[in-house]
Computed example of a mutant assay.
Amino acid sequence: MNNTDIWDRATWDAIRRARGVTYGEIAEACGITYKAVSKWFYGERTPSLRSQILMAKCLNIPLTEALKRITDPEVRAAIRSVIL
């Protein structure tokens, strides 16, 4: 199965902290609860790909760089249609 995960908890948490973005701000951007976001960053859960994309936007993480890890052309096309 192809990798469709752009989530990197340690890196994204460092970016979140450096940019001063709170769990609440990420929750609002993703349309989910604060508790769900905290579980992602504590390693208890993994965000859906949709949430990963919304969170990347919230944290100003360049999605073109993150998308390099996804190799399935259909998944890449679907993601591009959402973010462009």
Score class of each variant (00 low, 15 high):
A18Y: 07
E28A: 13
Y42H: 15
T11S: 15
I53M: 05
A29E: 02
Y34R: 10
A18L: 09
Q52Y: 06
E44A: 11
A27C: 08
A14D: 14
I32Q: 00
S48A: 11
L54A: 01
R69E: 13
R19D: 03
Q52L: 00
A10Y: 15
S38W: 12
R45L: 13
T71P: 07
Y34P: 03
S38K: 12
I32E: 04
F41M: 05
R16C: 05
R16V: 07
A27Y: 04
I70T: 04
T46I: 13
I15V: 14
E44D: 11
K68W: 08
V37A: 04
C30E: 02
T46V: 14
I32A: 05
I61Q: 00
R19N: 10
I70Y: 07
D72V: 02
L49Y: 05
G31H: 02
I15Q: 06
A36S: 11
F41G: 07
K35W: 14
R17W: 10
L63D: 01
A29R: 01
A29C: 09
C30W: 03
Y42R: 14
A29N: 00
E65P: 01
R17N: 13
T46H: 15
D13H: 14
Y42Q: 15
R45H: 13
L59Y: 02
L59V: 00
Y23T: 09
I53Q: 03
A18D: 12
K39H: 13
L67E: 03
S38H: 14
M55E: 03
L63Q: 05
L49W: 04
C30H: 04
I15Y: 08
T71N: 13
I32D: 03
Q52V: 07
R19Y: 08
T46E: 14
R69C: 12
K35L: 13
D72L: 04
N60K: 13
S48G: 10
K39R: 14
V21Y: 06
W12V: 08
A18N: 12
T33Y: 09
L63C: 09
S48F: 01
K68A: 11
A10C: 12
G24L: 06
I53H: 03
T11C: 13
Y23H: 15
V21P: 07
L67W: 08
P73Y: 01
R19H: 15
V21D: 03
Q52F: 04
C30Y: 05
V21I: 13
T33V: 09
I26H: 02
G24E: 10
T46M: 14
E65Y: 11
D72H: 04
R17P: 08
I26A: 05
Y34Q: 14
R69Q: 13
I26M: 02
E25L: 06
A10D: 15
I15F: 09
T46Q: 14
A14M: 14
K68E: 11
V21K: 05
L63G: 01
T71A: 12
S38R: 14
G43S: 09
G20K: 03
T64P: 08
C58W: 00
Y23L: 07
T22C: 03
C58Y: 00
P73V: 01
G43E: 08
T22M: 11
W40P: 02
V37Y: 00
R19C: 06
K68F: 07
T11H: 15
A66P: 05
Y42W: 12
L59W: 01
I26N: 05
G43K: 10
G24I: 02
V21H: 00
A14I: 11
G24K: 10
P62G: 04
A18W: 10
P47T: 05
A14R: 12
A14P: 10
L59A: 02
